[in-house]
């Protein structure tokens, strides 16, 4: 064959193959929905509640006109320990299953089991053990003024502030903690708004495990927050001691990166047998710190 004949042959193959879209659909069997149970119980909450949903399978049509997750309202939910057993009833107002401390006291160190059944055939179980310790003391170490600038009115000063706090881990490994800092502002002489927002932390983690860090002191610093002359600030600090399920679930939630192709996929932690979600416990202390 001549050189030109080879070129013609090659061109023919290329033309035959052509150029098509390089994005194609992949056929995949529609997965089945799963029951999702999410609940955090605590000895300090007047009511303890659970949310129960059905997950939304991918590779199938979404429910038309709504992206909400279907709430399961007709489940039978039994919470029980070695000592007690009670049914958690669906509450339409809060769209959850709840029970008061009187009906089912949540007690430190005790293990609670959960059994959820639905008419559709879902069957999920779980259990968690309430931490034995109280949360450690969260000590507010200082409020730093980062900057002070004149506002639009020369009599008003605008402050940029930052709070520092610390707590010490209980002796022995196996403790998990959650800390948070919120802020409420109000004009002097008026009632504070029943609304706070999370300031977030610039240093330290809101979730901590004492694995390999037993007995350490954990320091946190809030993000900067603003205040001005004539305004008061109430800082809400919370510190919780949690079980491992609470810690693992929230840690994976925080790590969840959605569709970032450059991040490892995050499987959300679950301790629900037969479904998704978490049933976990915590004990929380709140610290209110007013700045005027």
């Amino acid at each position: 064959m001549k050189f030109s004949a080879y070129i013609i042959l090659t061109l023919f193959i290329m033309a035959f193959a052509g150029c098509e879209s390089m994005i194609t659909d992949v056929e995949i069997e529609t997965p089945k929905p799963k029951i999702v149970v999410i609940g955090f119980v605590s000895p300090d909450s007047p009511y303890n509640s659970l949310k129960i949903y059905e997950s939304r399978p991918l590779y199938s049509p979404l429910p038309s006109g709504s992206e909400d997750f279907p709430v399961i309202t007709n489940a039978t939910v039994i919470i029980y320990s070695d000592n007690d057993s009670a049914i958690m009833n669906y509450n339409q107002q809060y769209n959850d299953y709840r029970i008061s401390q009187d009906a089912m006291p949540i007690i430190k160190g005790r293990t609670y089991n959960l059994k959820v059944t639905t008419p559709k055939g879902y069957y999920a179980t779980s259990s968690c053990t309430v931490p034995n310790n109280e949360p450690p003391v969260l000590e507010i170490v200082g409020i730093d003024t980062i900057s002070k600038e004149e506002g639009w009115d020369p009599s008003v000063w605008v402050y940029q502030l930052r709070a520092r706090a610390q707590f010490k881990d209980w002796e022995g490994e196996g403790h998990f903690y959650r800390v948070a800092a919120g802020q409420m502002n109000w004009i002097d002489g008026e009632q504070p708004y029943q609304y706070s927002y999370d300031i977030g932390l610039s240093r330290g983690s809101s979730l901590s495990s004492d694995k390999n860090n037993d007995g350490n002191t954990y320091a946190i610093t809030t993000n900067d927050f603003m205040a001005q002359t004539g305004e008061s600030i109430r800082l809400y600090f919370t510190i919780s001691i949690t079980d491992s399920h609470y810690y693992n679930y929230h840690k994976t939630l925080m790590n969840f990166e959605g569709d970032n192709p450059f991040a490892e996929p995050t499987t959300i932690y679950s301790n629900i047998e037969g479904g998704l979600g978490v049933f976990s416990s915590y004990i929380q202390d709140d610290i209110i710190y007013d700045i005027r």
Partner: peptide, 29 residues
């Protein structure tokens, strides 16, 4: 590969809301 098979609500416990609940006002998640 790890392929997502479904979506569900990743409801977080919010300690700050809890702090307000503890001060008398019931808030949902």
């Amino acid at each position: 590969i790890t392929l997502p098979v479904g979506e569900f609500p990743g409801i977080e416990h919010n300690p700050l809301t809890d702090a307000l609940v503890n001060s008398g006002q019931p808030f949902p998640y």
